[in-house]
Write a protein that binds this DNA or RNA. Structure first.
Length: 136
DNA sequence: GCCAACGTTGGC
DNA sequence: GCCAACGTTGGC
């Protein structure tokens, strides 16, 4: 099982929308590097949901319920999507500032490439982030 | 609101 | 196929 971080603009589609939907398709990713990571996402993987814009923090955890497949709404199979379900909102959102302030995240793509919207999270970093978020 | 970083487009 | 110009994203 792999771990990921997915960015979203909360004004357009936030973690609360995923909770409301109970299960939803994560679409609209167009960046080639982000799509490459999306293609590696499989059922059972977990992902942090990160809000961009004013929030800039990890707000929840989602689970992949269907691994990547071509977006049915698009003609081109290169636009892949995954299906997600919410797992839990985190007790204490982890801000970008907190991540940047921690040397353990110096190589983390969230810090290294601010424009990337889908990225892998190494297991030790996932553990560290869940702790920072107030989870075990 | 600004701008750095990065992608994309189109002329050559 | 290169690269300048332009557009977009997202942090500040």
């Amino acid at each position: 099982m792999n771990y990921w971080l997915l960015k979203t603009e909360p004004d357009e589609y936030g973690y609360a929308d995923l909770v409301r939907a109970k299960r939803d398709c994560w679409d609209g990713v167009r960046n080639p590097q982000a799509l490459m990571f999306m293609r590696e996402m499989g059922k059972g993987d977990r992902a942090f949901i990160y809000h961009t814009g004013k929030a800039r923090e990890i707000v929840g955890i989602a689970e992949v319920v269907k691994g990547s497949y071509p977006d049915p709404a698009q003609d081109d199979p290169k636009w892949v999507v995954v299906d997600l379900k919410p797992v839990e909102a985190v007790p204490e959102p982890v801000t970008l500032a907190a991540v940047k302030a921690d040397a353990a995240f110096a190589e983390f793509l969230l810090v290294r490439n601010s424009r990337l919207s889908v990225m892998p999270v190494a297991v030790p970093l996932w553990r560290r982030l869940t702790k920072m978020a107030g989870l075990k």
